[in-house]
Design a protein around this nucleic acid. Structure first.
Length: 467
DNA sequence: TTGGGG
C-alpha cells in the first residue's frame, strides 16, 4: 500500500495547477487515438479526459508502454480511466499528464454500465495497478455525472460532408460499412445524409480507354448485395488508413454507429473524396443522443421529405439549358437508387455530371455501321456509373447526325469544356461539368446472368441547342 | 527518451 496521498484523486481543474507533480486522476475519456510507435522504442497513445470540473477541453494524457498490448485498449469513448502517479507537465501553452511506465498505472472501466457499486471491476489495468475499495465511489460518481452530462459540441468544429475541404478536419458521421478490400487495405464507409461537394476533374480524356476515370475509390466495385444495404441519398465517404495505423481497433467502429472523428485528413483523387485515418486521428465520445448526431438526423429527415430531396444539393435550382428529358412526371432518383434498384430492367430520371467520355473524339462516336456507340461516365454525389449512348439514343441526344463542329460543341458542353478551351492543351485542363438531367435505363445482355451483365444506357435525353 | 497537432 502506498502513502496517504494515494487515496486522493485530483480534479482536472486542480491538476492544472500541479505542474511537475505526480498526481492521481480519474476521468471520462472524451477522445482517444489508436496506439502508435514512438520515435524511441516505446508505443504511445494519447487520450483526453474530462470531469465535472473541466468538461470543455479536459486534459490530454500521453501514455507510454513497451508494446501496444500494454497500452490502454479503450473500448469506447465515455469509458472511465483511473491514472495513478502521472506527471503533470507543461508543453508550450498546454498542460497535460504523462504516464511513465516505470511508476504510473492505469485502469479502465466501462462508462455507461450504470451505478451498481458492485459492478466496478476494471476491464483492463496495467501491471502496477492496485484495486482499492476506496476507488469504487469515484467510479460510481463519475458514471452518475456522465448520465446527467450533456456534451456541448460546437457544430462549426464538425463540418458536414457537404462542407468538407481538403486538409485536416473533424467529422461526425454514421459507419455504413467497414471491410478489407485487398490484403491489409481497409476501408471504412461513412455517411451523414448530405452531399460532398463536387470536384473538378483533371483526367486526360484521350486516356479514358487505357486509364479510365475510376468509378469508386476502392479498386473493385462493391457487390450489389452490399450496396443495397447503403443509404441511397447522401454521399458515402470512403476512409482509408495511413501506414502505421493499427487495424486491430476497427471493432471500435461498428456498422450503424454514429461516431465523431477528430483530425481526419481529407483528400481528392481523380475527383473523388476520401478520408485518411492517420496516427493523429482520434475517436471522440459520441452518445446516441449527441446534439450533432440528432441534428444530422433531423436535416436528413427534412431532406428526404422534400420532393427534390434526392437531387444533388448543388444542382439546385436545376438549370435545364444543357439537356431536355422526357418523363416530366417521374421524380428524380440518385445513381445509388439506380444501382440498387430491385429490378434488373428499369427506367430512371437522374441529375448527373459527365466526368468522362469514350471515345472522346467526335469523329469516332459512331461505329463502323454508322450508328452511335459511346460510353459516358456519370457522377452524382452518391456514385459514378458508366452509361452507354447507343444507336437511336445517340440520335436523340445529339439531334441526328450533326456536323463534327456541332457534335464537338455538344459533347464539350456535357463535359464542361468551353469552346474557347478547344485547343489541344486546354482539353486536358481541369473540367467542371454541369449538372444535367438524364433518362437512364438498365438492361441485360445475357439471360443466364442478368445481374452479372447489367448495363445502363441513356435514352430520351437531348442536348439543347445553345440560345 | 518517446509525444503533445496539422
Amino acid at each position: 500500500m502506498g502513502t496517504r496521498d494515494d487515496y486522493k484523486f485530483l480534479t482536472i481543474k486542480d491538476a492544472y495547477s500541479s505542474i511537475n507533480q505526480k498526481v492521481n486522476l480519474i476521468g471520462i475519456i472524451l477522445e482517444f487515438g489508436f496506439p502508435k510507435r514512438t520515435r524511441g522504442t516505446d508505443y504511445c497513445c494519447s487520450l483526453r479526459i474530462i470531469d465535472e470540473t473541466h468538461h470543455q477541453t479536459g486534459m490530454s494524457v500521453n501514455i507510454f508502454a513497451e508494446n501496444a498490448e500494454r497500452l490502454p485498449h479503450v473500448a469506447a469513448g465515455g469509458d472511465i480511466i483511473q491514472l495513478s502517479h502521472v506527471m503533470v507537465k507543461k508543453h508550450g501553452e498546454e498542460i497535460n499528464a504523462v504516464f511513465n511506465k516505470k511508476y504510473s498505472s492505469f485502469a479502465l472501466y466501462k462508462g455507461e454500465d450504470g451505478d451498481d457499486v458492485d459492478d466496478v471491476a476494471p476491464y483492463q489495468f496495467s501491471s502496477k495497478f492496485l484495486q482499492r475499495d476506496e476507488d469504487k465511489n469515484f467510479i460510481v460518481n463519475l458514471r452518475k455525472w456522465l448520465l446527467s452530462f450533456e456534451l456541448r459540441e460546437d457544430a462549426s468544429d464538425f463540418p458536414m460532408l457537404r462542407e468538407i475541404k481538403e486538409g485536416h478536419i473533424n467529422l461526425a458521421c454514421k459507419i455504413v460499412h467497414c471491410c478489407e478490400v485487398a490484403q491489409d487495405e481497409w476501408f471504412i464507409f461513412v455517411w451523414d445524409g448530405t452531399d460532398t461537394p463536387s470536384n473538378v476533374v483533371c483526367s486526360k480524356l484521350e486516356d479514358e480507354m487505357s486509364c479510365p476515370l475510376p468509378l469508386q475509390p476502392e479498386r473493385l466495385p462493391l457487390p450489389r448485395e452490399l450496396l443495397c444495404t447503403f443509404p441511397t441519398v447522401g454521399s458515402i465517404l470512403r476512409i482509408t488508413f495511413d501506414i502505421g495505423v493499427d487495424k486491430n481497433y476497427l471493432h471500435l467502429l461498428p456498422i450503424g454507429k454514429w461516431i465523431k472523428f477528430v483530425n481526419m485528413r481529407l483528400e481528392v483523387h481523380a475527383g473523388l473524396w476520401f478520408g485518411v485515418f492517420t496516427p493523429f486521428t482520434k475517436l471522440r465520445y459520441t452518445p446516441n443522443d449527441d446534439c450533432l448526431i440528432l441534428e444530422c438526423q433531423r436535416l436528413y429527415d427534412q431532406r428526404i421529405s422534400l420532393e427534390l430531396g434526392r437531387m444533388p444539393s448543388s444542382s439546385l435550382p436545376l438549370s435545364t439549358c444543357t439537356t431536355e428529358v422526357n418523363y416530366d412526371h417521374v421524380p428524380y432518383v440518385t445513381l445509388m437508387d439506380v444501382l440498387t434498384h430491385s429490378e434488373v430492367t428499369a427506367k430512371f430520371k437522374c441529375v448527373a455530371r459527365v466526368v468522362a467520355a469514350l471515345p472522346r473524339e467526335p469523329e469516332k462516336l459512331r461505329s463502323p455501321f454508322g450508328t452511335y456507340r459511346m460510353r459516358l461516365t456519370l457522377e452524382d454525389p452518391t456514385m459514378r456509373i458508366h452509361a452507354f449512348v447507343l444507336a437511336e439514343d445517340g440520335e436523340t441526344l445529339f439531334d441526328g447526325y450533326p456536323e463534327i463542329d456541332n457534335l464537338t460543341r455538344k459533347l464539350n458542353r456535357l463535359l464542361g469544356i468551353s469552346d474557347c478551351d478547344d485547343s489541344i492543351g486546354a482539353k486536358d485542363g481541369p473540367r467542371n461539368p454541369p449538372w444535367v438531367p438524364f433518362c437512364l435505363k438498365s438492361y441485360y445482355i445475357d439471360k443466364s446472368d442478368i445481374w452479372g451483365c447489367r448495363y445502363f444506357r441513356i435514352f430520351d435525353t437531348k442536348i439543347v441547342e445553345e440560345a
